[in-house]
Amino acid sequence: MTDAVAAKIAELGFALPQAAAPVAAYVPTVEVGGLLHVSGQLPFVDGKLVTGRLGEDVSLEQGVVAAQACGLMLLAQVKAALGSLDRVERVVKLGAFINSAGTFTDQPKVANGASELMVAVFGDIGRHARSAVGVPVLPLGAAVEVDAVFAVRPA
């Protein structure tokens, strides 16, 4: 395989991080029935976890960057599981969880950080279904967490 998707990521100015190890009793990915389910990923920017709450101490712009970082970690997990991002047939669904103050209502704008990354990397097959949910707290105090489902080609 040519790893064309990895080349596209580099062309966009991004580098995939090292796939993060689970922080509890779960596995990062499960492949079944042609679908790769990727556990929720947290946002690491410049090697540091982005923590805080949107609408309080995290700006909308910081939230978008955090969601994008979650998207990059999702791709790192996919590459670790499949060996190549070129096996992705379609981004099926993203679930975005945004640590939000009660008055914050821009969860969809935050989630766009991950969604727009998938479209930039994969083109039309990066368009996906999505949920964007405000929550009062996330693991380790993270500002954002994103999970995903990808349709994948056989090895």
Score class of each variant (00 low, 15 high):
146 V>W: 06
103 T>K: 12
73 M>V: 00
71 G>K: 03
131 S>M: 10
56 E>W: 08
88 V>Y: 15
27 V>I: 12
124 D>S: 14
13 G>C: 07
135 V>R: 02
148 A>P: 13
51 T>N: 00
47 G>K: 09
123 G>K: 03
53 R>M: 00
75 L>V: 00
119 V>S: 08
152 V>R: 02
97 F>T: 04
146 V>M: 07
144 V>N: 09
105 T>V: 10
137 V>F: 11
121 V>E: 14
128 H>T: 04
144 V>I: 07
67 A>H: 00
22 P>I: 05
108 P>Q: 01
91 V>K: 13
146 V>Y: 02
34 G>E: 14
94 L>T: 06
107 Q>C: 15
20 A>L: 10
49 L>F: 01
75 L>S: 00
129 A>V: 10
93 K>I: 04
147 D>M: 11
67 A>Y: 03
148 A>W: 05
62 Q>T: 14
4 A>T: 05
60 L>S: 07
57 D>W: 01
12 L>A: 10
34 G>H: 07
52 G>F: 08
48 K>V: 07
90 R>A: 14
54 L>G: 13
48 K>M: 14
140 L>K: 15
7 A>M: 00
33 G>P: 03
27 V>Y: 11
136 P>T: 08
120 A>Q: 12
121 V>G: 12
57 D>C: 06
77 Q>F: 06
120 A>R: 11
10 A>Y: 05
55 G>I: 05
15 A>P: 03
86 D>W: 14
154 P>N: 04
52 G>E: 06
43 P>C: 09
28 P>W: 10
90 R>N: 05
71 G>P: 06
52 G>R: 01
14 F>V: 01
74 L>D: 02
70 C>P: 00
99 N>S: 11
85 L>Y: 07
61 E>K: 05
106 D>R: 15
44 F>A: 09
44 F>R: 11
48 K>N: 07
154 P>C: 08
111 A>W: 14
83 G>W: 01
2 T>K: 13
20 A>F: 02
149 V>G: 11
151 A>H: 10
155 A>S: 08
34 G>R: 03
51 T>L: 00
89 E>H: 06
109 K>R: 13
8 K>C: 11
68 Q>K: 02
5 V>Y: 01
125 I>N: 03
138 L>Q: 04
43 P>D: 04
24 A>S: 12
131 S>T: 14
12 L>R: 08
82 L>G: 08
93 K>V: 07
100 S>F: 02
27 V>G: 10
13 G>Q: 03
119 V>A: 08
71 G>H: 08
17 P>L: 03
68 Q>E: 13
42 L>V: 12
148 A>D: 10
55 G>R: 03
22 P>C: 01
106 D>A: 15
23 V>G: 01
27 V>R: 12
